[in-house]
Structures are given as structure tokens and as C-alpha cells.
Amino acid sequence: MRGLMVKDICLMKGQAKFMLLVLAITVFLSYNTDGTFAASYLVMIASFLGISTISYDESDNGYGFLFCLPVSRSQYVAAKYLFNLLLSVAAWIAGIGVTVIIWLVHPGESGLTELLITNLFFLPVIFLIQSLMQPTMFQYGSERGRIVLFVMIGVIVAVCYLVGKLCELTGIDLSSWMESLSQYSVGVILLVFILLSAVILLISVPISVKIIRKKEF
């Protein structure tokens, strides 16, 4: 499995210039925006880079040879999850770093702690993105997978909107429910989110393995 990760790292080397450019743009753009821009932008870019390692594997029938190497299907999936998680978390930390540095140089309205806590909520988001993205990419490949992913996100947004509208119509008061949540400390809410999303991530792993096992190369 280490070999697979080394392979993905070697493939990423070619993107080094691109990554530096993105970092520069992020610093520039987050100068005047709110404290969550840097982390969210970098995490999004990291997700796309992660998808590209799958398209590298797919290209030129690469999978055939890949599975002749001493790696099992499940090791492949594990390596992909690990690599993507590490990439996203690294991007997230870099984003926080940029935010903190900019805040030190040019403090905005919010306090540092508040900024940090808001950014912490990105961690469960990373987990959720990965648990959706990985199985989709494995099932549909990187080309179709991207499209499927956008459609899925679109559907989720639409569902949220519909649920909101439904609540309005049926008179369920969402905002007061949300307010009642605020009686719990932020720490607890954060923890709950992280745990829930981690569980979802863990559930997606065997699903991905099953998808890959079914495939023929």
C-alpha cells in the first residue's frame, strides 16, 4: 500500500507549480474576504487533485497493470482514501494557516478563536465530501464521476431547499429548533458532527471496496 501512495505522490509532483499558484491566489483572495475562504477554497482544490490521481490510474488502461502488482483491491481503496484525506487535511491546515497569518497582519472583525472554531467545522465537511466522492469515482471513473458528483451535490442542495420550503409550508419552525441547539456548547456540536461524518466515511469504505472488486480490467 505504501507503494501506491508513493505512486500518487510522484504523480502529484507534476502539479507542484499549480499548487503553489493556487496558494498564492488563495492568499491574495482571502485578504479581504471572511475567515473561511482560504480553508474552503484549498480543500476544494485538494478534492479535485485527489480525483486526478484516479484519472491517472485509469488512463491508458493503467488499472490492468496496477492490479498485477502485489496490491489487493482493498489496499488500493485504502491507499486512495488515505491519500485523499491527507491531501484534504493538509490543504485545510494550510488554509487555517493562511487565515491566521492574515488575521495577525490585518485583523478583521471576528476574534481569532471564533475564526478557528468556524474553520474546524470544515473537518466533518472533508469527511462527508470524501465519503461521497470516493465511491462515485470508483463506480463511474473520473470523467463521468465528476458529472455524477455535481449532480449529486445539486440534488442535495435541492433537497435541503425543498425541506426548508416544506417546513415553511407545514409550519415546522426550523429556526427555533436551531436556536434550541445553541444551548449545547459549540464543542459538543462540533464533536457530534465530526463523529457522525467519520462514521459515514467509514461506512463508505467497504462500499468502495465492493465497487472495485466487481470491476473488470
Binding site: V6, K7, L11, Y56, D57, N61, Y63, G64, F65
Partner: peptide, 23 residues
């Protein structure tokens, strides 16, 4: 395999490093 191999974006040096971790 006739139609499959390591990704074309890798170099021989990369492959050596990868193989070291595999075998």
C-alpha cells in the same frame, strides 16, 4: 501486459522508488 503499464507521467526514477516500496 501489451496495453497496460505504469502511468505515462512517471519517470524511471519514480518507478524505481515505487517498486522499492512494492517488492
Amino acid at each position: 501486459l501489451s496495453d497496460s503499464g505504469f502511468s505515462g507521467y512517471l519517470t524511471v526514477k519514480d518507478i524505481a522508488v515505487i517498486l522499492k516500496r512494492m517488492y
